[in-house]
Amino acid sequence: MQIQGIQKLQTDENRQASQEPDSPSLHIITKPVETEEISFGETAEPIREQRKSGWTVTAYYWCRVCKQKTPVTDAKSCDCGVTMCNVCWAEWDFTCPICESDMSK
């Protein structure tokens, strides 16, 4: 009885294996370049940060005052090092609060 049981199991396994499709062979796939589109508000131009393609761009600054991640088109950096978003610059009348340079242009 025990031998018959083992034989039945083996037969079932062989049948199951024969019904499974062949495992796919390895092949090279082409992965598309990941492109991330970031858009902040209406005034900001969409900035594309292309990755894994050998070049990168700085898409944003951190505003020193409101601590928000801001696209470069919506932020300014003074020569003395003060970096703020345009909203915060407006609060300082577009004059650098450290060196008093004109930041309106």
């Binding site: 005052v65 300082w92 004059t95 609060p97 450290i98 060196c99 008093e100």
Partner: peptide, 13 residues
């Protein structure tokens, strides 16, 4: 510190 404005900025930020 050039002005009160500069001082206020430094104090806060």
């Amino acid at each position: 510190v050039k002005s009160a404005k500069v001082a206020a900025y430094m104090q806060k930020n």
